[in-house]
Structure formats: C-alpha cells, structure tokens
Simulated scan of single mutants.
Amino acid sequence: MNDEHNASAHGVRVFAGPRWDPFMMDAPAALKTIATGTLAFTDPGSIYLDGKSVLSLVVEVDLALLEKTELIGVVAETLTRGKFNVRIERVGRPEVKNMMLGPKQHDQVNRDLEIRDIYNSEDAFNLGESYPGAYRARLNANLAYWDGIDGKVDWATNANGDHPLTDLMMADYLVVDLTKPYQETGSFLEIELAAMRGQEHESCGGRALNDDVMDTIFTQLINAGYGPVIRDGVDAATRPATRTFPYLAEPNPDPPSAPAHHH
C-alpha cells in the first residue's frame, strides 16, 4: 500500500493507494447533449468532480511473462466491498453505461428496463445468453440517436437494424497489441475500428491514461470520424499521468465532495 518505489517480483510490480483521478470529461454537458439532441459542450468545458482522489490499483507486467503473445484483451473492474460484491464499473468502453445504455426513451423494445445493473453483472469476455438481445436493442436505438445529433447519418444500419458500433461497444474490454510501441494519444479504439474496416491496425491500441478518449467516442458516435473532432472542451487532466511507475499523480490532499447525482 502507498509504496511508489517497490521493486518488481516475478515480472510483476504493483501499487495500491489513493491517487488523483485522471479521467477527464464534461459529464453534465454530455447528459445535456443527450437530453436535448443538440451539442451542449462549451470551450472550455469543466472536468466533472475535478480533483477527486480515487483508490487505485496499478499493475505492471513484464512482457516476457506473456511469451510472445501479440494481442491481449484487458478488463479492469470496480466492485463494492462486502460479502456480496456488486460490479459498478468495468473499463474498456468508458461511459457506455451512462451515455449509450442508460437513456431509455429511444428503445422500442425494452423501454422501461434499467439495463445498466444487469450489464455490469456480466463477464466482459463472455456475455451470458439471456440479455444480449436487450443490450443490442438499447445500443442500436441510442447509437442511432447519437449519430443523428449533427443532422446526418454517418453509420448505416444493416437489414436487421443493427448499428455498426453495437458489437464494438458490447466488447467492453481493451485490446492491446504488444508488438507496437506505446503511444499517448490516438490509439484508443484504433485496433477495433481498423478491424471493422477490414484494414490492418497501426497502433498499440488500449487506452493511455492521458488520451482524451471521450473526444474519440463523441466523434465516432456523431460523425464516424468523417467530420471535425467533437470536443467536450476538456483536453487534459488537471494533473496528468506520468511516464514513471505508478503513473497516476499524487492524490489531492483536499478532494472535493461529491454532489448528489443519479446512478
């Protein structure tokens, strides 16, 4: 705990303790965009709950342990404590829950279903057989809604009404190419989008701590990368991650308290 200088053992190095939350997003502006169907981002925007400290677990693995593996899938999960653990977040597709699974009004199939808790209970690598149809209906509806925000359709649905990004969003894990060099920006979803186009990917994939991934997501949702970058007005954490272990910045000695918000 809290040991930034601990040595590596058996090819693994671990840090646990509070750190500055690196996530950057103007969440209220995103929710306003969903509610109104019009871009509500400002420049500059503001990072929701900026400066909060989060209990963090950092694991560094020596590639030699993976024996020439080229592609790996990675999931990180947040669970509640106690005898009965509830998974409240799983990272691969940030904000898929709140922005793409949460809104109910566009879904003609399961309009009254709160789907996020069910989705969070899944194994990201192996969705159960009961609910993927419900996730798919919700994603197809909400992804089509996002696509229409700029007044034009950039993602054509197939004969079944499936949105091209639905499968990509349901694969709620990161894909990393261990043979490619680390890059700080532009690698998020690059492997997945290249695979959709039937092209070779060019980056390491994954998700770097300082990459402004929400701009990537907003841009893909709204104009499929054919138009300008859709910015939420927030481009970097107030205390960016570093290139040295444990990467996350020192915790805030005086973190803000959380305002009341839903789910």
Rank of each mutant, 00 (worst) to 15 (best):
G161M: 09
D117T: 10
R138T: 06
A194I: 03
H106I: 01
Y131M: 10
A64E: 13
K104L: 09
M100N: 09
L39W: 05
V86Q: 13
T80H: 05
V12M: 13
N98H: 11
G45V: 02
L178Q: 06
P255T: 03
D147I: 03
E129D: 14
A249L: 09
I217T: 07
L143Q: 01
L55Y: 11
A144F: 04
N160Y: 07
A249T: 08
V109L: 08
A159F: 11
A236C: 06
P253T: 04
D3V: 05
L63W: 00
Y119D: 09
M100D: 11
V75Y: 04
A64Q: 11
D212N: 15
R81N: 10
T80P: 01
E250N: 12
G133Y: 08
M1A: 12
M170W: 02
G225M: 05
H10E: 15
V96P: 02
N6E: 09
S130M: 10
T69L: 12
P181T: 00
N160S: 14
S130Q: 14
Y135K: 03
G92V: 01
R87E: 06
N2S: 12
I230C: 01
G102F: 04
R231S: 15
T38Q: 10
K152D: 12
N142E: 11
E202D: 07
A134R: 12
L57R: 11
G11H: 10
E70Q: 15
N110Y: 13
P259H: 10
M196L: 14
D21C: 11
Y48D: 06
N85L: 12
I34L: 15
A30I: 07
W20V: 00
D232M: 06
M170V: 05
V175W: 09
L193T: 13
